[in-house]
Amino acid sequence: GWEATKAGHDVIMTPVSHMYFDYYQGSPDHEPVAFNAFLPLEKVYEFNPVVDSMSVEQKKHVLGGQANLWSEYISTEAHSEYMLFPRLTALAEVIWSPKEKIDWENYTHRVRKMMQRFDVMEINYAKSAFAVQQESTIDLETGEITVALHSEFPDTEIRYVLGEAELTPEAALYQTPLKIDSTTRVKAAVFENGKQMGDTMNKFFDFHQAVAKSVTYKFEYSASYPSTGETALVDVLRGSKYFKDGRWQGWINNPAVVTIDLQELKEVQQVVVGTLEEQGTGIYFPEELKVEVSQDGTNFQQVAVTTRDYQTNPGAKIENFKLDFKKQQAQYLRVTIKPLSETPKGGGAWLFVDEILVN
């Protein structure tokens, strides 16, 4: 669009960054299947068809903006409504309003009133903006995890519970980040006037024997998908179905060969490997996983292996591969995760891993 205006052409701006409504608008774990990219309501509201770097003459050629809804994954009118609303209201406001009138916080209050109209009109709109999102970090020295909760709408009432308790309007009110240092589940949701407004965030934090332990790699992970670096596979923090969420470590054309040093002899009997598949983007489940153990870091003994045949999978899917073996003492575990050797379309397969749990 920018180059077209520079050449003197009239344009309707429809950038992929803000205007592709076939993208997910909330966590893929809760949303209907969509193209595996992310476009939340607030991002749509940030759209301005007139780019600041355009000259005065270029800006005269911008006629407006346009949203796109590609329908590869959409087979019903209800699904199309879900992808369009309320994002279409955000587009309408920023296109038809003077720049000085654009106010996200003000809009979030008014669009909630609009949602009440959608209810009356029986429009199947998305409530993704009410969904609770979590941002977690781990202190590798103490092993403590800090969990911050928020929603896309500002000033929302978030309530939460720990463990398996039921989430109700009387649950604890979230005010400050949560501190977690042992295995537990966190459930949270936005409430208004005693009514739950969006899906329940349900996040399980599984503290295992390898948390924050030393990890070495035979083959370096891809610089494009490093996750959080060398401790990413032993930090408790798990990935979502969105492969760009920053929690997945990726390899291409190489297996993941990871050695974990537990720092002392421990009794072990299981390894769990978290993996992702999104065949449309070239990410496939592994075809073989193998576990070897050692007491000295030099002499390793194979204790478990599992294989998986290729299966067609149209969407994003997470699979935790469990490898059980006889209890034994070990300080070192070497986990080899082999990618799919032959993809349906040819070429190398991406291998994505988010955690290696040792029990």
Rank of each mutant, 00 (worst) to 15 (best):
G64H: 00
G64C: 00
G65Y: 06
A67N: 08
W70T: 09
W70K: 05
W70H: 14
S75R: 08
S75H: 13
S75T: 12
T76V: 01
E77T: 14
S80N: 06
S80P: 04
S80W: 02
S80T: 11
E81C: 09
Y82P: 00
Y82G: 02
Y82S: 04
Y82H: 13
M83S: 12
M83C: 13
L84I: 15
L84D: 04
F85Y: 14
R87L: 11
T89H: 15
L91A: 11
A92M: 13
E93I: 12
V94R: 10
V94E: 02
V94A: 05
V94N: 05
I95F: 04
I95Q: 13
W96Y: 10
S97T: 13
P98F: 04
P98S: 01
K99H: 12
K99Y: 11
I102G: 01
D103K: 05
W104Y: 04
W104T: 01
E105F: 11
N106L: 15
H109P: 02
H109E: 14
R110A: 07
V111P: 00
K113Y: 09
M114V: 14
Q116E: 15
Q116A: 15
Q116W: 06
F118E: 02
D119A: 04
V120K: 07
V120R: 07
M121V: 09
E122T: 11
E122W: 05
I123W: 01
I123F: 00
Y125Q: 00
Y125K: 03
A126E: 00
A126I: 02
K127Y: 04
K127G: 10
K127M: 03
K127A: 10
S128F: 07
A129K: 01
F130W: 14
F130V: 03
F130Y: 15
F130A: 01
A131F: 15
Q133M: 07
Q133F: 05
Q134H: 14
Q134P: 04
Q134D: 15
E135I: 12
L140G: 00
L140D: 08
L140C: 07
E141R: 03
T142K: 11
G143P: 10
I145R: 02
V147F: 07
A148W: 01
L149I: 08
H150C: 08
D155K: 00
T156Q: 15
T156L: 08
E157K: 02
I158M: 06
R159V: 09
Y160S: 08
E164W: 03
E164A: 13
E170W: 07
E170Q: 11
A171R: 06
A172D: 13
L173F: 04
Y174A: 06
Y174R: 02
P177V: 02
P177M: 02
P177A: 01
K179C: 05
